[in-house]
Computed example of a mutant assay.
Amino acid sequence: MSEIKAITGGVYLVIDPAMERSLLLSKLAAALKAGLAAVQLWNNSLAGTNKLEYIATVSGLCAAYNVPLFIDNEWELLVESPFLDGVHFDAIPNDYELIKRHISRPFLAGITCSGDVDVVRWADKNRLHYVSFCAMFPSLSAGSCTIVTPSTVKQAKEITTLPLIVSGGITPDNMLDLKRQTPFDGIAVISGIMSAANPYHEVLRYKNALTKNYNNYENQYDK
């Protein structure tokens, strides 16, 4: 595996393996072309799915753009597959030192904080690569995530220098107001991109909102 690209911010796309595969791969390819920071394979595989083969297929698309591929929670798959670059934890795992020994190779790691800044402190102490906050707004994709206040994200920024990723109901429009309330480095999106008719265009809308570059992006990037 080539050198892993660090997470610094940008658009972090979460994909649902329960989506029809050819449609998912088509939408993912379009999103990657627009420029993603990372891709996470959600732990929602259909019964009978060959996870290792699925990971290899998705990795082939991500690797072409040097975009790291994460697995959701199932860190054991990093042992079995050389095509995964990292793992995203939904909560503080049991015995993280043991997990690192089992994986036995460099990997990226991030974690969800649902409003408990002690999770941020743990991530900072254990040198994870980012912290994600779920959910900033109500969202079907966010499931049972607790709504996180902007003040919590702001507090986390004072605790750690790790990149902070916000998620849950994020749109290019509500992101603007959220940026006025708290600093953050990136966004994680599922349906906002993967349910769009034109994922390429949607990624650019998110990126432009994230960087405050709003000038005529529809004309510049419309495909």
Rank of each mutant, 00 (worst) to 15 (best):
M1R: 13
M1F: 11
E3T: 11
I4M: 15
I4P: 14
I7Y: 04
I7W: 03
Y12L: 11
L13Q: 08
I15D: 09
A18R: 05
A18P: 00
E20S: 01
L23I: 07
L23V: 07
L28Q: 05
L28E: 04
A29I: 08
A29E: 10
A30D: 09
L32N: 07
A34L: 03
L36A: 01
L36I: 04
V39A: 01
V39W: 01
Q40F: 01
N43V: 01
N44G: 14
S45L: 07
L46W: 08
A47S: 14
G48L: 02
K51E: 14
K51P: 03
Y54F: 12
I55M: 00
I55A: 02
A56H: 12
A56E: 06
A56T: 07
A56I: 05
G60L: 07
C62T: 06
A63E: 08
A64F: 03
P68V: 03
P68D: 03
I71M: 05
I71E: 02
D72V: 03
E74F: 13
E74V: 14
E76C: 12
E76N: 14
L78Q: 02
V79G: 04
S81H: 06
S81K: 06
P82W: 15
H88M: 04
F89M: 00
I92V: 04
I92L: 01
N94A: 15
K100L: 14
R105C: 01
L108P: 02
G110T: 00
S114K: 09
G115E: 05
D118W: 08
V120F: 07
R121F: 06
W122T: 02
W122F: 10
D124S: 13
K125A: 07
L128N: 10
L128R: 08
Y130M: 09
S132Q: 14
S132C: 13
C134T: 10
M136E: 09
P138L: 07
A142T: 02
S144E: 10
V148S: 01
T149I: 06
P150T: 05
T152R: 10
K154T: 15
K154R: 15
Q155H: 11
A156I: 08
K157G: 13
K157V: 09
K157E: 14
K157Y: 12
I159Y: 10
I159W: 11
T160A: 12
T161E: 11
P163K: 13
I165K: 08
I165N: 12
V166T: 09
S167W: 13
G169C: 04
I170R: 01
P172N: 10
P172A: 06
D173P: 06
L176P: 08
L176K: 15
L178V: 13
L178W: 14
Q181T: 10
T182Q: 01
F184L: 00
A188Y: 00
A188M: 00
I190P: 00
I190D: 00
I190C: 02
A196K: 02
A197Y: 13
N198P: 03
H201P: 10
V203L: 00
R205L: 13
K207S: 07
A209G: 08
L210P: 12
L210D: 09
K212Q: 09
N213Y: 07
N216I: 11
E218Q: 15
N219D: 15
D222E: 04
K223N: 14
